[in-house]
Every structure is written in C-alpha cells, then in structure tokens.
Design a binder for these strands. Structure first.
Lengths: 112, 112
DNA sequence: CCTACCCGTGAACACGTATTCATATGTCAC
DNA sequence: GTGACATATGAATACGTGTTCACGGGTAGG
C-alpha cells in the first residue's frame, strides 16, 4: 500500500495538523491571507507561540508567507492543501454514525 | 470557520494519524481486515506496541475490531474514514506542484 | 538620530506519549 | 485438566514537543 517513506511523510503532515492551535491557525487561513497579528488575536494565543507554529507550518509547505510593510501575511499555498483540509472538515461536519458497539459479541463475523 | 471544540476534535484525529506506526497500521487495514498477528509481522513491530496503538485507534473509531476464534481482526469501520484516508493518500501520491508561486496580492514585495 | 510597532528566534521548562518489559486474560487442541 | 498460541494491559522509562520568557532584528514615521 504505502512504503515506509511515504507513510512517514504523510504522518508528518498529520502530526503537524494534530495540534489544536496549529490546526486552528491553518483553518483560519482557509478564508484568506491573515497577518500574524490577526491570527494571534483571533485565536487568543501569544504572538511568540503563533510564530513558532507558523515556522513549522511554513517548513512543511502547509502555509506560505508574504510580507507587506511591517506585517507578514500567511495563506494556503496551493489547492492540494486546501482540498485536503476542506475534505476533512466536511467529513467531520457530516452526521456521525451510531454509537459504539464496545460489547464484544462472541463469534462476531467481520467480513473476511 | 471551525469552533474550538470541532478544531480539537479534528486535531485529535490528525494526532492519532500523525504517528508513523499508527498510520501504517490504519493504512494496512485499508486493503481488508487484518489480524493483530498479521499487522505485527507486516510492520515488524512488537505485538505489545501494536496492541497499544490499536487500543487508541479503536477508541477514536478509526478502526473496529472483530473476534474470530483466537484471533482479532481489525478493519476500517465506515466509508468516512476510508474516504478520508484514500483522499489524503491520493494527494500525497499526486505529482507535487512547482516551487514558488509568489504573490497573488497586489503590492506584495517579494519574499527573500 | 529615536521611538513604536510587528515579527522571528533561542533557551529552558513542563508535560505528554511512544516504546519496552513483564504479566494477565482468553481460546483452541490434546 | 495441561500446554500452546493470540491478544490485552499495567508500570516504568526515555524521548519529543508545546509553551513561555526574554531578547534581537527589521520597518515605518517623526
């Protein structure tokens, strides 16, 4: 299916999105370019923390940066990332299935 | 866009998939149900480690378990998870875009 | 020049967690 | 029953990493 390298590469993307504040930063930028200050105030995080996270997201090409005057604006770099995220969000929003079947019925037939 | 709770919930999914061994386990199960022993030998991991990871994936409904005799088979629980993963994998496989697409904003000074 | 503002960065700490080891539970065969 | 196999679980440890703090580096305006 996936070789070890591809798995590691994909896991790295998931890992970066697996932190609530980082995911919030990326999700905020889905609507359009945002300056660091806007991100900081929207998510109510310290500016330093936002900057640290932005560094990682930039390095992974999950966000791109552009300077205008004193401010630096961050945005989604390409349609791949945008589609990935919107797909995941759609899946999250869609109605959830029924509850858990934690109880283990003996002789359960999963489709072999 | 996403409220705090949804962000946290989605991040939790990403976090679980953000570990290479766990992602490998889930990806292996994309082809069909696998027993713990098969997963263990395919990924060359210790049985204990696989079991620990399976516990987390089960709890997050990223995998479901079914017993048959002595063995326990794990598989993808619903089409949501399957589509999410296949989409991500497709995006990973697809040819990567060119490097630097600079400014789409007027008056943006180039980024060094 | 100086000041104010916006952002990036390095060090240090605190906390989570992935991994291993040892052990427990459960199931089939004899 | 005993033993062999398949999986789950709990404790302990080592390692990564998210966060804060303090500071440095640019840039616009007076």
């Amino acid at each position: 299916m996936l070789d070890a390298d591809q798995t590691t590469e994909l896991a790295e993307l998931f890992r970066l999105l697996g932190e609530p504040n980082r995911l919030g930063i990326v999700a905020s930028c889905l609507e359009g370019p945002l300056s660091v200050g806007e991100i900081t105030s929207r998510l109510a995080l310290s500016q330093s923390l936002v900057s640290h996270h932005l560094r990682l997201l930039r390095a992974a090409r999950l966000l791109k940066a552009g300077k205008r005057g004193k401010q630096v604006f961050y945005s989604i770099p390409d349609c791949h990332v945008r589609e990935m995220l919107t797909n995941m969000i759609e899946h999250l929003i869609e109605p959830h299935e029924s509850e858990d079947d934690i109880n283990n019925e003996p002789g359960v037939r999963s489709w072999p």
